[in-house]
């Protein structure tokens, strides 16, 4: 039997490359604002009491982000963390998570989510058309996160700048991934948004 291929919820328009079991876009466009589908990234949901060993060890406050090695920990909810890492790293990431599972849970939601990266100096203008949270560069600084309604979906949004350029990771339910992608592209049209491929850095 051939090796199974995993696909993102977002259709690829153009050439692809294989990243582990995932098929991802290898486009390398740039522009004032770019959108990359990083749905293949590893996504682990951790639920634990904030005061528990695990909660403390994650060292990431609600509504902020924290890096441990190449994983980005997002304080997604009170006692709830979304751990994002490059594609194909689920077992390693779980292994590396500090603290024991006590009351709470740890679920691999890699396949349950869609993850997009919106980057560029005009990204904030696109964001301010899609969600009611103040995403002004000062109000929502690098390393901040929120969960709110974004394009009328419940999304986790984390600011994770790339080389000093504002960049946002937007995480939503997988089934709405195509809708979210299309919505951002439509809003971004006036800003000259371009689709780019799965980032080399892996997230």
């Amino acid at each position: 039997m051939a090796n199974p291929t995993a696909r993102s919820p977002i259709g690829v328009n153009g050439s692809t490359k294989q990243l582990g079991s995932w098929e991802v876009s290898d486009a390398t466009n740039s522009g004032p604002v770019t959108l990359a589908d990083v749905s293949a990234a590893t996504k682990i949901l951790v639920v634990a009491d904030v005061d528990s060993a695990r909660g403390a060890a994650l060292n990431c406050a609600f509504q902020s982000t924290h890096r441990i090695d190449n994983a980005l920990i997002v304080g997604a909810g009170p006692g709830e963390w979304l751990v994002l890492a490059p594609a194909g790293q689920t077992p390693t990431v779980i292994e590396a998570l500090p603290g024991d599972i006590g009351r709470g849970d740890l679920v691999d939601v890699t396949h349950g989510g869609t993850l997009l990266r919106l980057t560029g100096n005009d990204a904030v203008a696109v964001m301010s058309r899609m969600c009611a949270i103040n995403v002004g560069l000062d109000a929502f600084a690098d390393g901040s996160a929120f969960r709110s309604s974004f394009a009328r979906l419940v999304c986790d949004v984390a600011r994770d700048d790339v080389n000093g350029v504002p960049s946002y990771l937007i995480h939503a339910d997988r089934s709405s991934g195509q809708y979210l992608f299309d919505s951002i592209m439509a809003v971004g049209e006036t800003f000259g948004i371009r689709v780019t491929g799965y980032p080399v850095a892996g997230l």
């Binding site: 609600f62 909810g77 009170p78 969960r147 709110s148 309604s149 419940v154």
Partner: peptide
């Protein structure tokens, strides 16, 4: 004044 419950369904889910 009234005391009522709300569910933050699009936020912290609390």
């Amino acid at each position: 004044w009234t005391t009522e419950t709300w569910y933050h369904s699009s936020g912290c889910k609390k």
